[in-house]
Design a protein around this nucleic acid. Structure first.
Length: 916
RNA sequence: GGUCGCUUAGCUCAGUUGGUUAGAGCGUCUGCUUCACACGCAGAAGGCCAGUGGUUCGAGUCCACUAGCGACCACCA
């Protein structure tokens, strides 16, 4: 037993914890079925306890740094996180194994509104409100909650194998990060990039705070366009306005018409009587009124509509707030005061009807802004808030993407980014919440001025009064997230970490927070650090279910990562995700995908089981070579003269595999890396290589060479696979290493196999292909002719020159894998039986005439197919235009291939004639 | 309203600069309890690459349009 379950040494009350007694270099036989639950938690712990993932601030070598998109402390891990974390971990482990000084910095976000809502909901169950509790008590309460449940995400990440440096874990409300927030705020304020003022903001009456434009979601909604008649004073005419929000009319301070609108020219300079309120308001001339829309007359409510607010400024109109922060009508709404805004709407419509002033109603689809958090319809209202002036920050942020100092992947996101950046509007950063970074501004009760400083001031900077009070508001969560890539490294202090790891190398995140987060980090990074926060942004898309549907609780199609990792193993879920993770497309994940990934893990497990069993019976107890960064050259190995074909072949394939995988990960083509490894391990290493090696061990000759080569390849494969499937590979790797001090402590620290020029062996690959074709041909014949699977077939093999030596060496293997006793002859003359002909060999199986017949239809089909290809190639080679315009190498290739097809056709025809 | 993306086997998707029998996994069918693995082995079937037109010697790949789906942005009453 290598694992022991012991009570947690530090007296943790949670009961027993898995602890690992390790390392114990030990090669024992594996259980028959792969049970990841038995070793995954132990390795997760072990990696951390042994500091495998610690970055060094002093390291002067190549550095790779990445910060996690901090999950909400309120959060519970979902599939999107798991995808994100797996992508991070693959890239991070890959770099670490390539010898980089790697930092993956983890942490969480205080998530202002979201967290506050969670705790408030808790309070409701106790019959309390935060107001009853008071600000200080409430904050304590949130902190308490944060400390209790805030570690969930961390534990879950550890369980997923995320190779973060937990010693550098950060939280957006940490003292250091709060310092960074304050520093940034003061700097921006001093540069005039932060200002306070009364403007139209998006107000959520349920969350009771202003929110930014990005936090409102627009939704097409079916509504009405009401036509309301406003009597024109001094005439018997009326002006008919069209509105979607009649309740705001109580706050109208003008109606607007287009100056050139002929219909109303005679009314210029007149006034109308605002119905229900009996207030006289002017008719103003403004281009905001589109003569083609509705009636061409717009009511102007500066307090409740952005356009109207601006029109109000242009025309110096009063701003009458008729809807309050609680979404109820204010006292300015006269008899409607205290009504909810939607109730008021109904009453107003009824009252207008009664007075015959409602002259029309038409259906109208309109976009309705809702609060991102609680879906409550947003109330645009005028309010005194803090804003960031974004244009000056956006300009350099646009430039760095334009000139490639930051690269967005997939590249097409740049356009979306530019689009938003060019049209950026000022950012409302104050929130009327209690959970977050308090705004470092103090209001003076005496002179009314504001003091903004880094340190808490004792007196007003303007009148020296001590009657000052800190602004009650907190900052938008994204303000602190925007500083994440450098605030986490110690800024504004000039720390070693900051010098070593900023700018970070890469950011991996979802496109859904491109504006919320990525854009703001770029702006604030450039502003505060004078350099980009990261060089590459890889944006992945959404995780969907097997049918490509968005996962949602209401649809019931959510896959819980913890459930499935528990059931199928973390490695399996990681692999399933990676196989689907191609840049730019959504990832569909169903249980099927995860099951097949588990099958892959099980395959690797059982291949290892085979290897370990054979090692034991051969008296080999560990793998003795040190891992090398390069895929080894078989020629460089001792006893090179007797390297068997399967070894030359597998080394060559391993080399190509390493090449492909390295290039795939480098370009974030995770699906490609996964695919390549899957194919190599399963269909090359297991299906062919191990099958051939099993026979070698039976033969029991040259056993040391076989072992050395096999273990070298196997060990390299584990290393290649490690970033994707860290647990199973570590578990297996530790079992074959002998624990000597020159060996890395963990597979996570072993060098990642690199392509080595000259290590590919085309001759071996060619010969192996021939071998595979012979075996496959024999199996096809057996299946087609329904020959007893257990019967040894009797046959003849005629091999042409290039492959003859191979047949000599591999004869036993070919016979065993094809299940046929094969006589090797120089020609096939006079041999009776079913024949499969190939350019490199003929395979003839002796069968009865009845069995042979089954072969004919399939060969005929192939003949038809090849004939078609030949005729199309011939047509092309006869085409003058093609010959004159296509490049020579294309013409040559076709000529070559045509020759091949012809040979193939001839062979097929022979088979057809001979098979009787 | 603006922008972007997608449409390839029954399903989910690959297919890097255009180059000639279009690939994988799952599913389906046939046969195998072969001493690593039935989470397996061996074999097979299955696709006028959404449609139309264009560029080209050559198009799943480039261009235009059409249809369907999806996402993001958005202050027109």
């Amino acid at each position: 037993m290598r694992y022991m379950i012991t009570p947690c040494a530090n007296g943790c009350k949670r009961g027993r914890m898995l602890r690992l007694i390790f390392p114990l270099p030990m090669l024992t036989q594996l259980e028959k079925v792969y049970e990841p639950q038995r070793f995954e938690p132990a390795w997760a712990r072990w990696w951390i306890d042994n500091g495998i993932f610690k970055a060094s601030a002093k390291n002067t070598g190549r550095t790779f740094s990445i910060v996690i998109p901090p999950p909400n402390v309120t959060g519970v891990l979902h599939m999107g996180h798991m995808l994100n974390h797996t992508e991070h971990d693959v890239v991070v482990r890959w770099h670490r194994m390539r010898g980089f000084n790697v930092l993956w910095l983890p942490g969480t976000d205080h998530a202002g509104i979201a967290t506050q809502m969670v705790v408030e909901r808790q309070l409701v169950t106790e019959g309390l409100t935060r107001q009853q509790l008071g600000r200080e008590e409430f904050e304590k309460r949130v902190w308490k909650w944060k400390c209790e449940s805030g570690n969930t995400i961390k534990k879950q990440m550890i369980q997923l194998g995320a190779s973060c440096d937990w010693s550098r874990e950060r939280f957006t409300l940490d003292p250091g990060l709060s310092l960074a927030v304050r520093e940034t705020f003061v700097r921006l304020y001093e540069k005039g990039l932060i200002y306070r003022g009364e403007y139209m903001v998006n107000w959520c009456p349920r969350c009771f705070t202003a929110i930014s434009d990005l936090e409102t979601v627009h939704e097409e909604t079916q509504g009405y366009l009401w036509h309301i008649a406003y009597p024109v004073i001094g005439t018997d005419r009326t002006l008919v306005v069209a509105t979607t929000r009649p309740e705001t009319m109580l706050g109208d301070t003008a109606v607007a018409i287009h100056p050139d609108d002929e219909r109303y020219k005679d009314l210029h300079g007149k006034k109308v009587l605002l119905p229900l309120m009996n207030r006289e308001i002017p008719i103003i001339l403004d281009a905001m009124a589109d003569p083609k829309f509705g009636t061409g007359v717009v009511k102007v409510t500066p307090a409740h509509d952005l356009n109207d607010f601006e029109a109000g400024r242009r025309h110096n109109l009063a701003c009458i707030k008729v809807i309050g922060e609680d979404a109820k009508m204010t006292s300015a709404a006269g008899s409607y005061a205290q009504l909810d805004r939607f109730e008021a709407r109904n009453e107003i419509i009824a009252d207008l009807k009664a007075q015959d002033l409602l002259v029309g109603t038409e259906d109208h689809r309109l976009p309705l802004g809702r609060c991102q958090r609680c879906r409550t319809p947003i109330e645009p209202l005028v309010s005194k808030q803090w804003f960031v002036k974004t244009k000056p920050l956006a300009e350099p942020a646009i430039r760095v993407v334009e000139d490639g100092r930051i690269q967005l992947i997939p590249e097409h996101w740049s356009k979306t980014y530019f689009e938003w950046m060019y049209n950026i509007r000022d950012w409302c950063i104050s929130r009327q919440l209690w959970w977050g970074h308090r705004i470092p501004a103090w209001h003076c009760h005496v002179c009314g001025q504001v003091t903004v400083t880094r340190e808490e001031p004792a007196q007003c900077a303007h009148c020296q009064s001590t009657r000052i009070e800190q602004d009650p508001d907190v900052l938008d969560t994204w303000f602190s997230s925007g500083l994440w890539p450098f605030s986490t490294l110690g800024w504004p202090e000039q720390t070693e970490d900051l010098a070593t790891f900023y700018p970070t190398s890469l950011l991996i995140t979802g496109f859904d927070i491109l504006f919320f987060w990525v854009a703001r980090m770029i702006m604030l990074g450039l502003e505060c650090m004078g350099d980009v926060p990261f060089r590459v942004v890889y944006l992945h898309t959404m995780v969907r279910d097997a049918e490509g549907q968005k996962m949602s609780k209401t649809k019931g199609n959510v896959i819980d990562p913890l459930e499935v990792t528990e059931k199928y193993g973390t490695d399996a879920v990681r692999m399933a995700l990676m196989r689907g993770a191609s840049p730019g497309t959504d990832i569909s994940i169903g249980v099927d995908n995860i099951e097949s990934a588990r099958a892959f893990a099980n395959k690797l497990w059982n291949a290892s089981r085979l290897i370990f069993m054979k090692m034991e019976s051969s008296g080999v107890d560990s793998w003795a070579a040190s891992p090398a960064a390069n895929v080894p050259l078989p020629e460089a190995l001792p006893e090179s003269l007797i390297i068997p074909l399967e070894d030359k072949w597998i080394f060559s394939r391993l080399n190509r595999c390493a090449d492909a995988v390295n290039r795939s990960i480098e370009t974030y083509r995770f699906h490609e890396a996964a695919q390549t490894l899957w194919h190599f391990v399963w269909h090359e290493f297991c299906d062919w290589y191990l099958e051939l090696k099993k026979l070698r061990f039976e033969e029991n000759s040259g056993i040391n060479t076989h072992w050395r080569n096999l273990l070298t390849v196997y060990e390299s494969a584990l290393r290649l696979l490690h970033p994707l499937m860290p647990f199973i590979t570590e578990e297996l790797w530790q079992r074959i290493t002998d624990g000597s001090p020159d060996r890395p402590q963990s597979l996570a620290l072993a060098p990642y196999p690199q392509y080595q020029a000259g290590s590919s062996d085309s001759k071996a690959e060619f010969e192996m292909e021939i071998l595979q074709s012979i075996v496959t041909a024999a199996r096809e014949l057996r299946a087609d002719m329904k020959i007893d699977p257990k019967a040894t077939m009797d046959g003849v093999l005629v091999v042409r020159e290039k492959a003859q030596a191979m047949i000599g060496e591999m004869h036993t293997g070919i016979e065993r894998l094809s299940g046929a006793k094969l006589e090797v002859l120089a020609t096939a003359d006079g041999v009776e039986g079913v024949k499969r002909g190939f350019p490199e060999f003929d395979l003839i199986i002796r069968v009865s005439a009845a069995q042979a017949e089954a072969q004919r239809s399939r060969i005929q089909k192939e003949v038809d197919q090849v004939e078609k290809v030949i005729s199309s190639s011939e047509r092309q080679l006869a085409d003058e235009k093609f010959l004159s315009r296509a490049p020579q190498h294309v013409v040559d290739t076709i000529k070559e291939k045509l020759a091949g097809y012809r040979a193939q056709l001839q062979k097929l025809r022979e088979s057809l004639n001979d098979s009787h």
